[in-house]
């Protein structure tokens, strides 16, 4: 048990940030599963983080209330900006949401009275326990897993494949898109609220463009086929720099190479159920089969 205590003392922050990153990756995966490439998740995370931190620090609210606020605020914002922006599609939606994200970051930067400006908020009470993160992750996974198998989940799938055809089948495309966007924002906000009460400090720079790209990378690298993908992606992206620590200054360099290699050689992301199935089949037969193109 002592060995575990030592491990936990050193690595608890790392383990918890895997969980939080997994939530973030899931948040963007969810909007992707409805065919929306929305890149405002870093901003929603920031809105959640600041709302929750301000609730506990300035309003003296309990952690539960802070978490609910951290989910509710970005969700509400997403509903408001979703109405006009979700009319856009593809890259244009990505860019509009990215633009929205930058505006949020700069507003946080300039609202010094509330947010501390560039200096950020310091001394946030460390209320996040390991089981908060675990419970949030499990709850989100369960809800989304259930949702995927429901009428709503099938509607998302239909919209992702072809939103014109989905509309013709009588699916309310706009309302489903809005639902996916707002729920994704809520999950990102939850991750932000948990993270703020873990790291003691938050600043506007954490919620900028780079973070948005990071979140997307985790989701796409992990694989967008199923719910396990974003979790695996978060695991790999969070752990990779740690394993490369011995390379010192060149660690990020190797990180970049690995990213490119994964993209080149694992087309559907790291977690790809069809490939795993194929591997199993192949090993059962004991010889490589002839489906080179499928991969």
């Amino acid at each position: 048990m002592e060995g575990f205590d030592n491990f936990w003392a050193v690595y608890s922050n790392l383990v918890l940030s895997i969980g939080i990153n997994a939530l973030l990756a899931i948040s963007i995966w969810f909007t992707l599963s409805c065919g929306l490439l929305a890149m405002a998740n870093a901003a929603f995370m920031g809105i959640g983080a600041y709302t929750a931190a301000l609730l506990t620090m300035k309003a003296g609210a309990s952690f539960t209330v802070a978490l609910l606020g951290g989910i509710g605020a970005p969700l509400a914002v997403a509903l408001i900006i979703g109405m006009p922006t979700l009319r856009l599609s593809g890259v244009y939606l990505a860019m509009a949401t990215l633009g929205f994200g930058e505006v949020v970051r700069i507003l946080i930067l300039n609202a010094e009275r509330w947010t501390g400006g560039a200096l950020g908020l310091n001394g946030i009470p460390q209320l996040t326990q390991w089981w908060h993160v675990l419970a949030s992750l499990v709850a989100v996974l369960l809800v989304l897993w259930r949702l995927r198998r429901s009428r709503v989940g099938r509607a998302f799938e239909a919209i992702k494949e072809d939103d014109v055809a989905a509309a013709l089948m009588g699916i309310g495309v706009m309302s489903h898109k809005l639902l996916a966007f707002a729920l994704g924002a809520g999950i990102a906000g939850l991750a932000g609220a948990l993270n703020a009460h873990l790291t003691f400090f938050i600043g506007p720079a954490e919620y900028g463009f780079e973070r948005g790209i990071d979140i997307l990378t985790m989701a796409v690298l992990g694989g967008t086929g199923g719910l396990a993908g974003p979790v695996v992606g978060a695991l790999v992206i969070t752990l990779l720099p740690e394993f490369l620590r011995s390379f010192r200054n060149y660690r990020l360099m190797i990180n970049g190479v690995i990213l490119v290699l994964i993209v080149l050689f694992l087309p559907k992301g790291i977690w790809d159920p069809s490939r795993v199935r194929q591997w199993l089949k192949r090993s059962r037969r004991g010889m490589p089969d002839n489906t080179a193109g499928v991969r």
């Binding site: 997307l216 990020l252 360099m253 190479v257 993209v263």
Partner: peptide
């Protein structure tokens, strides 16, 4: 990636990897 007809997000992420590589190589 082109020959494999990867969806357009995939090359974008590859270029993120390239950017990380060169940015930190330059820094080193």
């Amino acid at each position: 990636l082109r020959q494999r007809q990867a969806p357009h997000l995939i090359p974008m992420i590859a270029t993120i990897g390239i950017a990380i590589f060169f940015n930190s190589a330059t820094q080193g």
